[in-house]
Computed example of a mutant assay.
Amino acid sequence: MTFLKRYLIAGLLVWLPLGVTIAVIKFLVDLFDQSLLLIPLAYRPETLLGVDIPGIGVVLSFLLILLTGFVVANFLGSKLVAIWESFLSRIPLVRSIYNAVKQIAEAVFGSGDQMFEKAYLIEYPRKGLWTLAFQTGTHQGEAQQKTEMGDTVNLFVPTTPNPTSGFFIMASRHEIIELEMSVDDALKMVISGGVVVPGIKNGKSKSKAEDSTVGSEPNLE
């Protein structure tokens, strides 16, 4: 029965990641295909061509996002966005959801002071236990001045496996440890719950999960 277990696990290691990848891609394609609903029925690809082509919505969504970015990047577009956000801020439930999602998106995709700049280790939830946190800023405000912490760092501590939730803390710089790993590697570690652990090789961060697949076979016993 040992060899059956070995072959079964070897097969799962091939088909399980492939199956999940295909399922996720299919979900995203189906989601983006919903953008075709913006086009009148008479002008949709399945009407004009007589056949449904999966993935057309991906192209349309890409163009729509690109056009939106082009519009809002100029002065007039930014004013329109400001008016729209001012309107949403007057709706209690919508305001909370919209602002939270926007701040997270700015932290992940933004630049400068709005993005996760560095990864740190902090002692939490008690001394001797460590977790990952991301720097979101170093600006000194009223809170830092009143606590007299000196040089502080604003940190976001994400939860696993959903890094979009978490909590914000202000920590003294001498009480935290700056990591050399990139923000992307740190996020992979958080999302995987520690399964993907970046290591140091030749001065560069490398995932141990990736390193273990090079030149050796997984231990299936």
Rank of each mutant, 00 (worst) to 15 (best):
F27A: 08
L28M: 13
L28C: 15
V29Q: 05
D30E: 13
F32M: 06
F32N: 05
F32W: 05
D33G: 06
L36V: 00
L38M: 09
P40M: 04
A42I: 05
A42V: 10
Y43D: 05
Y43R: 02
R44H: 00
P45Q: 03
E46G: 01
T47G: 10
L48V: 02
L49I: 01
G50N: 01
V51A: 01
I53W: 02
P54L: 03
G55I: 02
G55Y: 03
I56K: 08
I56R: 05
I56F: 13
V58P: 04
V59T: 11
V59G: 13
S61F: 15
L64H: 12
L64Q: 15
L64A: 13
L64C: 13
I65T: 14
L66M: 08
T68K: 14
T68G: 15
T68F: 15
T68I: 15
V71Q: 06
V71C: 05
V72Q: 00
A73T: 15
A73K: 15
N74F: 07
L76A: 12
G77S: 00
S78W: 11
L80Q: 07
V81R: 10
V81S: 08
A82R: 00
A82F: 05
A82H: 08
I83R: 13
I83H: 09
W84V: 10
S86W: 05
F87A: 02
S89P: 02
S89T: 02
S89F: 03
R90V: 04
I91T: 09
S96Y: 14
S96L: 14
Y98F: 15
Y98K: 14
Y98V: 15
A100Q: 07
K102P: 04
Q103A: 14
I104Q: 15
E106G: 08
A107V: 06
V108G: 00
G110N: 07
G110M: 05
D113T: 15
D113Q: 15
F116P: 03
I122Y: 03
E123G: 06
Y124I: 15
P125I: 01
P125H: 01
G128D: 07
L129I: 13
W130Y: 07
T131P: 06
T131L: 04
L132P: 04
Q135V: 06
T136D: 09
T136C: 11
T136M: 11
G137R: 04
T138S: 07
G141C: 14
G141R: 08
E142Q: 06
E142C: 12
E142T: 04
A143E: 10
Q144T: 14
Q145Y: 03
K146S: 12
T147G: 10
E148H: 12
M149F: 10
M149C: 12
M149W: 14
D151Y: 03
T152R: 09
V153H: 10
V153A: 10
V153R: 05
N154E: 02
L155K: 02
P158L: 00
T159N: 08
T160N: 04
T164N: 10
S165A: 06
